[in-house]
Design a protein around this nucleic acid. Sequence first.
DNA 1: GAAATAGTGTCTCTGAGACATTATATA
DNA 2: TATATAATGTCTCAGAGACACTATTTC
Lengths: 245, 245
Amino acid sequence: MPYDPSDFPPFAVTVDLVVLTVRRHALCALTVRRGEEPYQGQWALPGGFVRAEEDLATAAARELAEETGLHTQESGDSHAAAHLEQLATYGDPHRDPRMRVVSVAYLVLAPDLPAPTPGGDAGGARWTPVARLLGDAVEAAERLAFDHARILADGVERARSKIEYSSLAAAFCPAEFTVGELRRVYEAVWGVALDPRNFHRKVTGTPGFLVPVGGTTTRQGGRPAQLFRAGGASALNPPMLRPEV
Amino acid sequence: MPYDPSDFPPFAVTVDLVVLTVRRHALCALTVRRGEEPYQGQWALPGGFVRAEEDLATAAARELAEETGLHTQESGDSHAAAHLEQLATYGDPHRDPRMRVVSVAYLVLAPDLPAPTPGGDAGGARWTPVARLLGDAVEAAERLAFDHARILADGVERARSKIEYSSLAAAFCPAEFTVGELRRVYEAVWGVALDPRNFHRKVTGTPGFLVPVGGTTTRQGGRPAQLFRAGGASALNPPMLRPEV
DNA sequence: GAAATAGTGTCTCTGAGACATTATATA
DNA sequence: TATATAATGTCTCAGAGACACTATTTC
């Protein structure tokens, strides 16, 4: 195995972001409109080149901040931090018609943002329900550029399976949330209805999963609900069971 | 987001392989001795450059065949095929002191090979127990080059968690195996002792997990054991529970 | 015979699913 | 008042863990 820098073919390396949130009871992904060829005018996942002296995760966090203003670390204040993790890497030789591009995809789980349309330097950016991007009969106008539909599908599947055995569903909620809000996250991500009583028993009975924060809220209507924040426990054992098995 | 080929910094892209097998009741990883600087003489994970017109998974399968002779597809004969899946991508700017290298790691689960030392064009290649490569006090002579200890740790963790809820443990076994042999795989990978009777009930009671093949063997000593092959079910639901929770 | 592994059965307890019921807000 | 959501409780059944016991081989 000779190892000569002149031996290896040059690659471009990018990061692509699957940014998921729950809005109006639907799982949504952040999409941006492409301003140039190829796939000009089509929607795509946000992303960009990794810089020469930049780590992959750093590049993903930078792109995320540029597109949404979201940060992945608590900035001292009480803002909920988005969760960021590496998803997978896509390197088909012809996934980009211009050159050889290897893209490292990252998955971001974010709370519903106050600003309806994310700011940043991206042209048109919007939240699109994943059902409309990944359904059986996706309209041509909604079809994602490159192999981004595949990347999005992988990200959605990762999110669906990870909230089973981790406390990551709280990443979709504001810093303080109720049991019912957390349940509606599960229902939106999985696309199923969960029994409110069994759900309540499960999440409040798991030590370290939820920490009561003291107040109550009626923002969902009905009887005031206790407010919680995510506890330190990152693993959920035994897992939350996804119905329809 | 201007998108000009001259904009992007050039990267080298490699694949690194975490090839795991179970030998003599121990989880082992394939390691090769480095023949040149940096880290000359140290052990490392097998791997190499991705070619210009080659898919990432293809490059991983090619490197695997070169180093071990293993194939990832059934070749028509009854040889057990190794399992190959993408693990993660490592791109710290200084993980290779010579240039910017992004490495896509793949995880391979292989049955114990008949040949004690894998062939191929790699110089010294051998199976090393992962406990010796990842323990708390790893000897200097056993320390892996680059960030390969981290990659190996990620691969081992992936394997440990995946056999919980999938039928992948059978990838460590020959094409036909007994319940006891499968149990010893779990015990080696997890490093725990499992109750043989509860294990037997679990795996034989899960529909589609094991298919009886008709014969028996006494290669483990004792009463003859029925032979099975892996069934079509790839998911194991409910999962096999890892003790010490 | 002893010793090893294979295979079946039995008991108990945790926990998920399917309900009922009560509590407290808004319209 | 009706209606929404929140919170607690009760029953049943599947399944994991902890065993006992029998079966069939090798030494």
